[in-house]
Design a protein around this nucleic acid. Structure first.
Lengths: 132, 132
DNA sequence: TTGCATTAGATGCGTGTGCATGTATGGTCT
DNA sequence: AGACCATACATGCACACGCATCTAATGCAA
């Protein structure tokens, strides 16, 4: 039996950490590389998994977004030239999403920023707020 | 020296947990009590701290929102009759925010739902996605 | 007192999100 | 084949968010 107060405290810690890190990440990636956190997270996953192509729903799961949000995220990344959408011949309802060279390059550029922010914020004591 | 991969994995775990819990909370609170997560979180803090009144910026810090988001959150809660905004005589730039009886009642009603969702999701193994 | 920087909170604006729905295709059952 | 439901992604819509800015009040200094 877990005491309720402990759970609530644990949840609040998680919320605090999440707010601090994601806010810092969002700023650093946007200012330094013109990428939102979701954008980078998607590119990062694609680079890491290193497969030639992905389905939209796979990507949605990977970045914890709804199917519609993923659809738009992929559309944004395609507009920016970082991924391409390919017809999917096996199942013509779906599409394949693939990294472009430019997409891979942008992820490579942004990765050090991403890692640096994590080092600075993920385990650091939380004192100040993000904006203010 | 922390290895970068560990940090990234830790961050992804946090993202996953955050997505799962906050999505479940949002649904349960909305469906059961007509409250968003931020709304409940704010009421919950006010009940817990149990002070007669709060400044907007205090509340912003407590729920990890920007000043503007907090201002609107308070406005929504006031429209719903769950808090009141009071003139602040010491500093007429600011306002005091206070819980109403209705606000306290709603928090009391929703708390069991909140705690239950935390018990079910905060430490549970993460398998399925929120919507799909 | 006057002038100016600072602070508290409200608000216009652009954007990203989820939900509900639309469109097209796929699969199944008769 | 035809009817029907399921699946994959796109899109209309409402809404909450952050940023920039605005207004009003405060504090401080000349």
């Amino acid at each position: 039996m877990v005491r309720s107060v402990e759970l609530v405290d644990e949840w609040r810690e998680l919320l605090k950490r999440h707010a601090a890190v994601s806010c810092a990440l969002e700023r650093a990636l946007q200012d330094g590389h013109g990428l939102g956190m979701s954008e980078f997270e998607l590119l990062d996953r694609m680079v890491e998994l290193d497969r030639p192509k992905y389905r939209v729903q796979e990507l949605a799961d990977a970045v914890h977004l709804s199917q519609s949000a993923s659809s738009r995220l992929v559309a944004r990344l395609e507009r920016a030239g970082l991924v391409t959408r390919l017809m999917c011949d096996q199942d013509r309802r779906g599409i394949f999403v693939a990294l472009t060279e430019e997409g891979r390059r942008r992820q490579t550029e942004a990765m050090p920023t991403h890692r640096a922010v994590l080092e600075q914020t993920l385990r650091a004591p939380l004192t100040s707020r993000c904006s203010g």
